[in-house]
């Protein structure tokens, strides 16, 4: 598992840097520490598996607070958003992302709804075409089909149209 190994080493490196940073008083007003907003911008897009369906930026648990600290740490190392997300996916699985990754079977997530909607549209379209009759057969049906309870409405409309 070369990838996981690399990640493990990477984390160790980060950890060492964190400890040295924390030990030095310079950390408090370090050159350019990431702001909470920068951390939240990434955390917003992640979900922690401990408290399901709560975005990481608003999750109050300690586990999530630790994750945010990790994001902060990685940001301070100049890591980009994509890199950080990938790290979380490797460590905790694809479910930390707010959408299924676009790969393999997960494409189904994105393809099925549009296909189903198109199929529905096709059915409706066909029904409409089948129901559409030449306009000649219309006048009789119009007056009959209207339910008697709504005569008033229909007539009112009719009347309004006339007056316009």
């Amino acid at each position: 598992m070369p990838r996981t190994l690399r990640n493990t080493k990477y984390v160790i490196l980060l950890f060492l840097i964190l400890t040295t940073l924390l030990a030095s008083p310079a950390f408090a007003q370090g050159s350019n520490p990431p702001t909470d907003d920068e951390v939240n911008a990434i955390a917003k897009q992640l979900y922690c598996p401990v408290c399901e369906n709560t975005p990481l930026d608003v999750c109050p648990t300690q586990a999530c607070a630790q994750w945010r600290d990790l994001i902060r740490l990685m940001l301070s190392q100049g890591k980009g958003e994509a890199e950080i997300k990938q790290y979380f996916v490797d460590n905790y699985g694809a479910r930390v992302l707010n959408e299924p990754p676009r790969s393999g079977l997960n494409w189904l997530a994105y393809l099925v709804p549009p296909l189903a909607i198109l199929a529905g549209a096709f059915i409706v379209f066909r029904a409409l075409r089948a129901w559409k009759k030449p306009a000649t057969a219309s006048p009789a049906l119009q007056s009959e089909a209207d339910a008697p309870a709504d005569d008033y409405v229909a007539r009112l409309e009719e009347e309004v149209r006339k007056r316009n």
Binding site: T8, V11, I12, L14, F15, A63, Q66, W67, N91
Partner: peptide, 9 residues
């Protein structure tokens, strides 16, 4: 389980 390494250490 679903932890961050610095805290774990």
């Amino acid at each position: 389980y679903v932890d961050t390494e610095p805290e774990a250490r």
